[in-house]
Amino acid sequence: MTTTEKSTAPKTKRAADVVEKVYRQVRDMAIDYRFRPGERINEVELAQRFDVSRTPVRQALNRLEQEEFVTFVPNRGFFAREITPQDIRQIYEFRALVECGAFRLACERATDDAIRRIQRAWKEQTTRCHDWKMISEADENFHVAIADLAGNPHIVKSLKDLNAKIRFFRRIDLEDAKRRENTYLEHATILDRLRKRAVDGEETLRKHIVMSSAHAVEVTKEGLARIFFDTAA
């Protein structure tokens, strides 16, 4: 390696690190709807906030557009994603397809020890959970753990991407005490069907995930109220 190559490599790595850091910070903001739906994203303000140039901000936003967290309008810039009940319901439908396929593969491929580890982890997590945010995180981890038993990293990546898009609404949904109680009971049933390698557990999982149109409207309304009026349940 030449002297020029040696001096260039660290700079390139530092630049990549900056872009990655900005990307993760802006992605977290998009996930939590700290950009209001339809709001134009001010690249200059973000650059000042993170003490960087506009270049890593623009690169981060380009990545987030590909992931559908923001949209780009030529000659106008980047805008925060919109929210509609139909969008939320469709994401949950897609999530159900991904997870049910993973469940079917997990029935074929998972070891008994792996299934027992998920049972223990879920029990430990719910014991430690003291608020709805922790419960939501535990719920997300539970579903990813089952998908991981399918032995296909592409499935896990798809599910994690979907989880990020609905995380805001998942938390709202699990604030409801009745919904949390049902979640615990349904998780127990899902694990029991998985332990028995019962493919009919796939339908149990689908019903557990899919959101009705009416419920999608309800959750979306609550989400919009939180975003625009800073309300809490």
Rank of each mutant, 00 (worst) to 15 (best):
P153V: 06
T127K: 12
R117E: 08
E108Y: 03
R167N: 04
E93A: 09
P85V: 04
I91N: 08
A80P: 07
T2S: 13
I41V: 02
D113P: 06
T55L: 14
A147R: 02
R49D: 06
A47K: 01
Q59R: 14
T84G: 02
E20P: 01
V44S: 06
R171H: 13
A96T: 06
Y23L: 12
Q25H: 09
A164D: 15
P10W: 11
D87L: 15
A147F: 07
M29N: 03
F103Y: 12
R36F: 08
I115H: 00
I190Y: 05
F142D: 03
R81Y: 11
E82P: 03
H143G: 02
C107T: 08
I83Y: 04
W122K: 03
P37W: 04
R49A: 05
P153F: 05
K160T: 02
A121P: 04
L224W: 03
S53P: 01
D139L: 02
R24H: 12
V156Q: 05
T55H: 10
V98A: 07
T71Q: 13
R24K: 15
V73G: 06
E39N: 02
A30W: 00
L61R: 00
N75F: 14
M211Y: 01
V219W: 02
D176A: 07
V73H: 15
F103T: 01
M1P: 05
H130V: 10
K133T: 11
A145N: 06
V144L: 08
I118G: 00
G38P: 01
L61D: 05
A106T: 08
A198E: 15
I135G: 03
R195P: 01
I115M: 00
A214G: 12
D192Y: 07
G77E: 08
K178G: 03
F35G: 02
D51C: 08
P85Q: 06
L97T: 13
V22M: 06
R226T: 07
A233S: 15
A214N: 09
L191P: 00
L46E: 04
I91E: 12
F79N: 02
T189Q: 15
D192P: 01
I91Q: 11
D112L: 09
L159Y: 05
D51G: 10
R167S: 09
R179G: 05
F50E: 03
F69M: 07
